[in-house]
Design a protein around this nucleic acid. Sequence first.
RNA 1: GCGGGCAUGACGGAACUGGUAGACGUACCGGACUUAAAAUCCGGAGCCAGAAAUGGCGUGCCGGUUCAAUUCCGGCUGCCCGCACCA
Length: 851
Amino acid sequence: MTTRYNPQNTESKWQNIWAEKESFRAFEDKSKPKYFVMSMFPYPSGRIHMGHVRNYTLSDVVARYKRAQGFNVMHPMGWDAFGLPAENAARDRGVHPAKWTHDNIDAMRRELRSMGLAIDWSREVTTCDADYYKHQQKLFLDFLKAGLIDRKESWVNWDPLDNTVLANEQVIDGKGWRSGAVVEKRKLSQWFLKITAFAEELLAGLQTLDRWPDKVRLMQENWIGKSQGAKVTFALENGQGAIEIFTTRPDTLFGASFIALSPNHPLVAELAAKDPKLAEFIVACNRIGTTEAAIETAEKMGYDTGLKVAHVFEGGKTLPVYVANFVLMEYGTGAIFGCPAHDQRDLDFARKYHLSVTPVVLPKGADAAVFTVGTEAFTEEGTLFNSSFLDGLDVEEAKKKAIVEIEKRNAGTGTVQYRLRDWGVSRQRYWGCPIPVIHCEACGAVPVPEKDLPVVLPEDVAFDTPGNPLDHHPTWKNVACPQCGKAARRETDTCDTFVDSSWYFARYCSATDATQPVAREAADYWLPVDQYVGGVEHAILHLLYARFFARAMKKTGHIGVDEPFAGLFTQGMVCHESYKSAEGAWLYPETVQKNADGTAFKIDDKTPVAVLRGDKMSKSKCNVVDPGRIISGYGADTARLFMLSDSPPERDLEWTEAGVEGAWRYINRLWRMAEDVASVTPSAGQFNEKAEKTRRVIHRTIAQISEAYERFHFNGAVAKIRELSNALEDLDAANPQESSVLREGVETLTQLIAPMLPHIAEEMWQTLGHQTMLVETAWPKADPALLVENTVTIAVQVNGKLRATITLARDLPAKEVEAAALSDEGVKRALDNKAPKKVIVVPNRIVNVVA
RNA sequence: GCGGGCAUGACGGAACUGGUAGACGUACCGGACUUAAAAUCCGGAGCCAGAAAUGGCGUGCCGGUUCAAUUCCGGCUGCCCGCACCA
């Protein structure tokens, strides 16, 4: 009678129907509350991986659930399609980047469609297409006009392998985030997006993001790195100018024993011109890499310039001026004053160069007469001493007073400093969005007139010579200056690909508008994104850039919101155990078979295999499972169910074959239930006790599942769903007192699983005799009357230890509950005839007898 | 070094604002069906003792608050993540 569930046929059937009916097409409809949910769009590598499956399953559950709840949902998808791999493919295999990328997109789109995602494909964006980057160029021009873009010469991170500049955020442990090559320092002219102009706003805005993980907000806060301090100017003793330093500890000025300049400080360059030894020292400093290891081991190196400055507070006192390798030009003013007694790094430096160490902050309870600093600087709270007018103040008071005194002497000012630096976006690559600027000898950097947009990438490029193919192109860069008409040269740098992904969320709102980046009315309707789902690895880079873009786009009138993403969810990674052969080679899971005891062997030659604990799926360890294989074997619903059931979505998930099998078994169980119940004719009338109880379970489950979906507790939702299945299977379809509850239960179950398992739910719904599609059906409502139990099970403890459970009517007076508890045999035994000293009754929950 | 997080059966994990620890699943054990296997169905199980009733112990370790602690506080240990010469 029952037929075997065929996921391949069923899934493609419903995917086709949804596509034909454009079920997930979103329109602006002001009569309904909107809900904009999106996942981080993928780089089109050509194949989806399990991380994608997890990410898109999560946003899809939200999209489908919100839709059923009556929201007007937009759930779009796109492609982060610019980037170096396409150029590498062009170089290695002779395919043009555009072709390579579009072929990959086509393949990945097919795979994503097989997942059954409720996506509005009419809003698909592809960042490498001119119909996308044209608008990005417009944004660039608008930002330029608004003063949000700068061109400046600066020290940059140079990736020698990818031959390009990297942003600070893209340097991980001193290496390129993509190539892994050790990054060098170079001085180049670059375009910068002035993200620092919004430093304070980006920091303050974090407070409003109450639906973001605290962890991500904290990471951004630290990255922006606000410090309160002072800029202080020390006059050079020779009368030839002054040195401005930044400090967060103006309270310790009386403990100053030296000034240290960055090797890249302008004054140092000046001095080096006349001092070959200093020039040599600078070269030595810049040679040391920026890797963790290099910094860790690099010794504090200083070079005494022989210059002296006058102390701002103490007349007659002078401080020597050093050049020190640990002072960064990029932070503050590139110059510091050293107070060795209260800063470990300054202390190390002072000891090495035999400079004075004067403590000015006295630890609580220490004796001023004998307190000295040895090898460890004192960096904690205390009371100021040896500090003239600051004596007796605590650190906070002294900071304030010192700033007042500095300002009074016109020697500086209180100031706020951010660690955040402007975002260098110039990349010396071909496969990126061309920067719409023309360099003219006479007019300088001239923006490309809007009528000439887009600046399109030339197609005939060669990738065989290292460096920037646009630079090598014979004609593309030669244009007339838009201002004076003389021969000029196009900007040959392209944008960092993080620019592309910084505004795609807004483009989705009016994805096909050819005239402007964003149609304001559409943006005002859809933005901000209500729920964004993606990996934590973008906690700083992408998410900070997008927040900057939102502000810049607001300032230039493109959108009306500051914060792009009202809600953020960061999912965990997908892991798998890895296998190593006796020879030490990594093995793919499908070539390995496991024994019952956890050991494993190679399927082909039966040799033993070492099983290593789960780690992030990666091709290099071969511990990957191809989603395509799982979907074509078990169906997308099985893959989705397993993704959701075993671990909370924010945590890492261990992919196991056994887990998938379990999910598959449950899919089949659901199918059998639907088929069995479809033939049951429900009879109206009396419910027996079991049926009555099950009805309560059904309605309680509706409430629980709804809450679980709201809170991203998808693993909990799966557990509750399975509990409901277990309860329903206890009912007897042949018993007229139970059959209609059974039917109600299976129908409700079908609706509840739909956001997670859309294909089988739709098929079950049809099998149960419904004419309309489940995707068009409203979310079930729990009957409040059935959510309240009339009896409760109360735990009875004696001295905090559970001794009995008693079942009583709900909301019984405390006296009666107490009496019932004390008359229980188990409680009596535990009391051992002793009189209770005190009885605590928590209504409908617990009784604790203190003996 | 600085900042943050986590620690629960064999395993993944559950437990709302302190109130019956171990839901749900995986693996395992026993049984039914089958010529047999798979699938399916029924049952078992935190650990220790006991035939059982039952008792003791138990949420990384030590201590505290409380009638009551996986949950709150203090101190350790271990693992994970972010930042890192940021003045």
